Simulated scan of single mutants.
Amino acid sequence: MANTVSFPSSRRIVIVTDAWRPQINGVVRTLESVGKVLREWGHSVDYLTPEAFWTVPVPTYPEIRLSLASRRAVFHRLAHSRAHHIHIATEGPLGLLARQYCIERGKGFSTSFHTRFPEYVSARLPVPQDWSYGYLRWFHDPAGNTLVPTPSLRDDLAARDFKHLKLWGRGVDMERFQPGKSDVFAHRPGPHLLYVGRVAAEKNIEAFLALDVPGTKIVVGDGPDRVRLEKLHPDVVFCGYRHGDALVEAYQGADVFVFPSRTDTFGNVMTEALACGTPVAAYPVTGPKDILTDGRAGALHTELSVAVRRALMLDRRDASAHAQNFTWAASARQFLDGLVPATVRLPQLAEAI
């Protein structure tokens, strides 16, 4: 469809997202990184985010805030953007209003699937996953394309009757995350096993904390379960959030990066660890099995302790070499190719009204 519409060399793109700073997660990192590349290529990228509106915190997730934007305000912003493309990145309040705008005005749009909310919700509330997937299927169905980060997630969503799925991979900042070996954890017994991410139930972090392997477990990140888990695991080093050089040093100082999640759709932290030369240990599930396609860069096993032991035997040079396969330029190209012209009325829009 995109080939039937002529665009200027500089396209105007609006990305609507409920996830934005000060949140620290893969969605925000991805949208910022791709936007930076697109701007370098001469495109105009505007973000419609909760920053412009009053917000309220999500219960149990105070760092995640939902927008209280009005229909009028969102419709006004989108109408005056004169966007060639509208991309709706999240399924929250802003995403819903943007979806409504596009359907009512007959605008073509694309969406992306970043997070397995059905699994996240069911980990905390007695809500059947089928209900949540039903909502997500309804949300994405009118889109011209729904962009997904990995082939295995695409296949899973297709089996759940999601339509118009296209791949949109992820990258890693090679200038920031570079191979090396720091001594930041040298004062603690090795080997050093690192986890980076939210300290929350949906990340399956307790599988990491319960590992019966020698060495020191280190957690970089924060979240609603941190206080409880610190008390249960006094032998684990909880560092809180680390940014910039301190985060790079944490990756470089680890012998193995452990990724215990079974529900992440990609896992940007894995590519960051690989870029720093740290092999990854993970379960053979969506995300890890799409990233760790070279057995020299990481180890997958249904028993996480086995994956850790195997990863400890890998060469850091192979890990950093594998990371070169993930670039933000390639990700930005896939994103651009997956956008839908706002001027083209999609057949499925008539059904959604």
Score class of each variant (00 low, 15 high):
2 A>V: 07
33 S>P: 08
35 G>K: 03
39 R>S: 04
40 E>I: 04
47 Y>Q: 00
49 T>N: 01
63 E>T: 13
72 R>E: 12
72 R>M: 02
72 R>W: 08
73 A>F: 00
76 H>S: 14
78 L>G: 01
81 S>M: 06
106 G>P: 10
110 S>W: 07
119 E>M: 05
122 S>T: 15
123 A>M: 10
124 R>H: 13
125 L>N: 11
130 D>W: 12
132 S>I: 14
137 R>V: 02
143 A>K: 05
147 L>M: 15
148 V>R: 07
160 R>Y: 00
167 L>S: 11
177 F>W: 04
179 P>D: 12
179 P>K: 11
182 S>D: 11
183 D>L: 10
186 A>P: 13
189 P>I: 04
197 G>V: 10
197 G>E: 11
205 I>A: 11
207 A>H: 14
211 L>N: 11
213 V>T: 12
215 G>R: 13
222 D>M: 01
222 D>T: 12
226 R>S: 09
234 P>Y: 10
236 V>M: 04
238 F>Q: 12
240 G>I: 06
251 Y>F: 15
255 D>M: 02
256 V>L: 03
260 P>L: 03
262 R>W: 00
270 M>E: 03
271 T>Q: 04
274 L>M: 07
277 G>Y: 01
284 P>N: 05
286 T>I: 13
289 K>A: 08
292 L>N: 06
292 L>S: 06
293 T>E: 03
295 G>E: 15
301 H>C: 10
307 A>C: 09
312 L>I: 10
313 M>Q: 15
313 M>P: 00
322 H>V: 01
324 Q>D: 01
327 T>C: 02
343 T>C: 12
348 Q>K: 14
350 A>M: 01
352 A>W: 04
